[in-house]
Structures are given as C-alpha cells and as structure tokens.
C-alpha cells in the first residue's frame, strides 16, 4: 500500500502498516475497556463509600480517552484533529458546567 499518497500528513508512524496499533493490540485494548466497564458496574453492587463518584468519573474519562486515542487513532494522527475535537469537547464541558453552575447544580447534595 502506498503510504506516501495516503498518509502524507502523518508526522510519525507513517511506515506502520496501518494506524498505530495492530489487530492484536486492538483486542487487548478492548479487553482493558471491558475490564474497566466491569469495575464501573461493580460500583452498583459493592459500596465504594466516598470513592464512589471519583472512581466512576476517572473510569469514564479513562475509557473515553482510550477509545479516542486508540480506536479513533487520535494519538497517532495529526495534532490538528486533536485540537479540533478537543476544542469542541472542552468548550462543551466548560460552557455547560458554567450553565449548570448558575443553577447551583454542583452545590446540591447528590
């Protein structure tokens, strides 16, 4: 396959057969995601106490970043894609958290 024509924009990994990871690595990543999901679901059965919310948020963020970085190749792709996507994401988080804050949403007790 012609990496020169199809992957002209790649700064790194441009000699890889495809983007970033191999099929085996994808399966490993999927297993990690499945394991993280299992931990998430376990919070429903086991009492995590004060760690409940932080655990869920960290796991959610980790899963999100893994899918975006590896499955969507953002880690290996041109930085411009990352800038564009994360601009939207961060803007969304900032704006909507701001709006929810004016409703005193974060001051309520869960």
């Amino acid at each position: 396959m012609s990496t020169v024509t199809e992957h002209a924009g790649h700064t790194d990994h441009s000699h890889d057969e495809s983007h970033g990871a191999s099929d085996k690595q994808y399966v490993v990543i999927a297993l990690i995601l499945a394991a993280l999901t299992a931990i998430e679901v376990s919070t429903y059965y086991v009492d995590f106490g004060p760690l409940f919310m932080p655990t869920l948020f960290v796991l959610m963020a980790v899963k999100f970043v893994i899918v975006v970085s590896y499955f969507m190749h953002l880690k290996f792709d041109n930085k411009l894609f990352s800038y564009l996507f994360y601009t939207g994401l961060i803007l969304a988080i900032a704006v909507y958290c701001g709006a929810l804050a004016t409703f005193k949403f974060f001051l309520q007790k869960g």
Binding site: A8, G9, Y86, G88, L89, A92, V95, L100
Partner: peptide, 29 residues
C-alpha cells in the same frame, strides 16, 4: 495541511456534536 478534506471535515463535525450531546446531557442532569 496534507490531511484529507473528508477526515478533517469529520473531526470538525464530531467536535460540533460534543456541543449537541453536551446540551442534552446537561438538560438531563
């Protein structure tokens, strides 16, 4: 940029979709 127009367009679209789902999730929250 040496990048494909289509792919750039798709990422830009996904950036925009963040705001769509952000609004719906905030409404739910």
């Amino acid at each position: 940029t040496g990048l494909s127009n289509n792919k750039l367009g798709m990422w830009i679209f996904l950036g925009s979709e963040c705001l769509l789902f952000g609004g719906l999730i905030s409404t739910y929250m």
